[in-house]
C-alpha cells in the first residue's frame, strides 16, 4: 500500500487526508534521514571497525598454530576446529555450558517474571523490596563471587546453617552437579534484578482497561495473567530470554574464582576454556577456534529463537 496516495487510518480511527508529495517534503525527509544516520553512525562504525576487524582477526588466528613466545605463526587450516571435536574434555565442557544456557535462560526468565509480578504491587514500602532485588546487579561479579566463596567454603556459613539442622557439610565447590547448581544460583541471584526491572516496566505498561475488561468478562486472576498480561509483555519476555541465553554463554568469573574449572574440567565452561587455552597454555590458535565456535553457537541459538518470535510474541505476526 502506498501511504502517500491513500488516506491513512490513525489508531484513533480518524481518517487523515494524504499529504501532497513534493520536492520540499522529499528534501525534508532526506535531511531527517541523514540526521538519523548520523545518530546511528558512531555505533555502526564502532561495530564495523572494532567488531568486524576483531572477528576477522580471530577467524584468521583460528586457522593458525601460534607460538606466542617465539612470535611465530603457522597456517594449519581447519586443524584447530577438528581438535574441538576430538578433545576428550569437550564433552564435559559443552554439557556444562548448555546446562547454564538452559537453566539460566529458562529459570532466570521465570524467576525474574515471578519476582516482577510479586513486586508489581502497590504496597507501602514495596520500593525497599525492589531495591533489595536490584542491589546485587550493581555489585561487581568479582565481589559478589568472593562473598559467595566465604559463604560456601568448608565449615563456612552454609555448612554452619546446615549443621544446625543436623545436615551437611556438603562439598559445595568440589565439582559435579552440586557445584554447577551452586554456580547457577550465584549467577541467577546476581543478575535477576535487572530482568525484574525490565519486567516491572513491561507490567506497568499493560493497559489497565484491558485487565478491567477481562475482569468484567469473568476472567480470574490466572486467566487475566495468562491471556491478557502475558501476551502484552511477551516482547519483554523474549528480550530477557535472548539476553539470558547470550549472557549464559559468558559465565566466566564464577568458574575462575571459585573452582578454576576443576576438579579436572568438571566445572569448566566454553568461555573459561577459551581463556585457559589462550592465556594459561599459550595456545592462541586453538583458543581462537573455540571462540569462533562459541560465537557460532550463540548466533545459531539466538537466530533460531528469533525465527520463532512470530509464534511467541504478541503482535509479531502482524
Amino acid at each position: 500500500m502506498n501511504q502517500r496516495t491513500h488516506p491513512r487510518v490513525a489508531a484513533s480511527g480518524i481518517v487523515r487526508a494524504p499529504r501532497p508529495a513534493g520536492r520540499r517534503r522529499g528534501g525534508r525527509d532526506a535531511g531527517r534521514n541523514a540526521f538519523g544516520y548520523l545518530l546511528l553512525a558512531p555505533q555502526t562504525l564502532g561495530l564495523l571497525v572494532v567488531g568486524l576487524v576483531a572477528i576477522g582477526g580471530v577467524v584468521q588466528l583460528s586457522l593458525t598454530r601460534v607460538n606466542v613466545l617465539a612470535g611465530t605463526r603457522e597456517f594449519v587450516g581447519l586443524e584447530n576446529y577438528a581438535r574441538i571435536f576430538s578433545d576428550p574434555d569437550m564433552g564435559v565442557i559443552l554439557t556444562n555450558t548448555f546446562f547454564f544456557v538452559f537453566v539460566l535462560s529458562v529459570a532466570g526468565t521465570a524467576l525474574a517474571l515471578a519476582l516482577a509480578v510479586l513486586l508489581n504491587q502497590k504496597l507501602p514500602g514495596i520500593n525497599i523490596f525492589r531495591s533489595a532485588i536490584f542491589i546485587p546487579a550493581l555489585v561487581t561479579t568479582v565481589a559478589w563471587t568472593l562473598v559467595w566463596r566465604f559463604i560456601l567454603q568448608p565449615e563456612g556459613l552454609l555448612d554452619g546453617m546446615l549443621g544446625l539442622v543436623g545436615a551437611g557439610p556438603l562439598p559445595w565447590l568440589r565439582g559435579g552437579w552440586l557445584t554447577l547448581a551452586v554456580f547457577a544460583v550465584i549467577q541467577l541471584t546476581k543478575n535477576v534484578g535487572i530482568n525484574v526491572m525490565i519486567f516491572l516496566a513491561a507490567l506497568q505498561a499493560v493497559p489497565q482497561e484491558l485487565i478491567d475488561a477481562a475482569r468484567v468478562d469473568g476472567a480470574g486472576p490466572w486467566s487475566r495473567f495468562r491471556h491478557v498480561v502475558l501476551p502484552q509483555i511477551s516482547p519483554a519476555i523474549l528480550m530477557v530470554f535472548m539476553l539470558m541465553i547470550s549472557g549464559s554463554f559468558k559465565v566466566f568469573e564464577l568458574v575462575l574464582l571459585l573452582t578454576n574449572g576443576g576438579p579436572g574440567v568438571q566445572t569448566s565452561v566454553l568461555a573459561f576454556e577459551i581463556f585457559r587455552q589462550a592465556f594459561r597454555l599459550n595456545d592462541i590458535g586453538y583458543a581462537a577456534a573455540l571462540a569462533v565456535f562459541l560465537f557460532a553457537l550463540v548466533l545459531a541459538l539466538t537466530g533460531i529463537i528469533w525465527q520463532f518470535r512470530r509464534r511467541l510474541v504478541f503482535h509479531e505476526a502482524d
Binding site: 565439582g175 578454576n260 576438579p263 574440567v265 594459561r280 597454555l281
Partner: peptide, 18 residues
C-alpha cells in the same frame, strides 16, 4: 611448563585432593 603445570594442578585436584 605452562601446559604441564596446568595439567598437573588440574589432575591433582581431580584425583588426589579428594
Amino acid at each position: 611448563n605452562a601446559a604441564v603445570a596446568d595439567a598437573l594442578n588440574s589432575s591433582l585436584d581431580e584425583f588426589l585432593y579428594q
